[in-house]
């Protein structure tokens, strides 16, 4: 405790917690992104294919979703003012997203245990739940970017953002399948990944155009010298990665399934870059143009207690998460309970 007191000043605490919040939301978007994406990709697949797709996310989805709980938890713990403001404003989309997450979480288990005749019903709920959760998350991201404004243009942007996030999740899901499956499923996933990538790229461009127009603060950060220089590497790298991913997807599948992990790694890269761009644009606001992280933060003594826990426990979480991914490495096999 004393070490944390000595190392971190009161002023730095909110910055650190913003970082932690960012990390958990980014990890959430990547991890739950691929399993939500797979949920949506199941739409027009056969039952056998669906089983295989479910098998590829079986051991992971629960822990993936926990990152959302952590993210909301950090928002709640570190920035209680923002938590109330943001979630109160987003009341209905949050409720719908939760309904989506509930539906898919339970359908995952029910489909394997309920009557055979009911499997289709649960599959439909699983797909619908995945779509609902992805689009509402995108919608909320859009709302956040436009500073919670309502009005026709803002709503239109939120809808575009919903589509963009959904296609980004589709991309993650397809890339995960390329990594975890083989044969016709992999070929299908490569095709899916191509179209999802095109949509994602289009969405990224649209968001990048609207973002500075929606907020003068962001306009200044993006186009004023020398701030623009700091930002420049992000869109450049992102564009390069997208092109590389296009090329890679054209070449796959390769002999002996080489490079099957590359698309996923590149997609993660695109997520990280896009996320960093957003984070850079909004810093130091937690609610755009309204509330800075220092205004919204809770008492330093409470933040220190949580920080201590994070410093000790987060590395452990990363280690056993890695352990889990290592245990279930390679192509996914059929899911059999013990």
């Amino acid at each position: 405790m004393q070490y944390i007191n000595a190392l971190v000043s009161d002023h730095q605490l909110p910055v650190i917690f913003l970082g932690l919040l960012g990390i958990s939301m980014l990890v959430y978007a990547i991890l739950d992104g691929y399993d939500l994406g797979i949920g949506m990709l199941m739409l027009n697949k056969s039952e056998a294919d669906r089983d295989r797709m479910i098998a590829s996310i079986g051991p992971f989805w629960d822990a993936n979703e926990t990152w959302l709980v952590l993210g909301v938890g950090i928002l709640l713990v570190a920035f209680p003012m923002a938590h109330g403001l943001v979630l109160g404003t987003l009341y209905t989309p949050v409720a719908l997203m939760l309904a989506g997450l509930i539906l898919r979480g339970v359908s995952f288990d029910f489909r394997a245990k309920a009557r055979v005749g009911h499997k289709k019903f649960w599959d439909t709920l699983f797909i619908a739940g995945s779509m609902l959760a992805s689009t509402t998350q995108g919608y909320m991201l859009g709302k956040y970017i436009v500073g919670f404004e309502s009005g026709l243009v803002a709503e239109l942007f939120c809808v575009i953002s919903a589509a963009c996030v959904a296609s980004a999740y589709l991309l993650m899901g397809a890339c995960w399948l390329i990594l975890k499956t083989i044969g016709h499923m992999q070929v299908m996933a490569i095709k899916n990944a191509r179209s999802a990538l095109a949509l994602t790229a289009l969405g990224l461009v649209l968001v990048s155009i609207v973002n500075p127009l929606a907020s003068p603060t962001i306009y200044n950060k993006w186009f004023k010298w020398p701030e623009a220089l700091y930002l420049l590497p992000l869109p450049l790298l992102c564009a390069i990665l997208i092109v590389c991913l296009f090329i890679t997807l054209r070449q796959l599948p390769k002999h002996q399934d080489r490079h099957c992990g590359r698309p996923f790694a590149m997609a993660v890269g695109i997520f990280v870059l896009a996320f960093s761009g957003l984070a850079y644009s909004f810093y130091p606001y937690i609610v755009p143009d309204t509330l800075t992280i220092w205004q919204a933060a809770s008492a330093p003594e409470s933040l220190r207690v949580v920080l201590l826990g994070c410093v000790v426990v987060l590395p452990a979480i990363f280690i056993y998460t890695a352990l889990s991914y290592w245990i279930f490495r390679g192509k996914s096999t059929e899911l059999t309970y013990y």
Binding site: G58, P59, F60, D62, A63, E65, T66, V69, L70, G73, G309, C310, V313, L314, I317, Y320, T321, L323, S324, I327, F328, L335, T336, Y337, Y338
Partner: peptide, 19 residues
């Protein structure tokens, strides 16, 4: 969340599908 949720969620995967 930190000490319990991640622990149970991660090892649940191993418990259910890792035998």
């Amino acid at each position: 969340v930190l000490t319990a949720f991640f622990l149970e969620a991660t090892f649940l995967g191993i418990m259910l599908f890792g035998s």
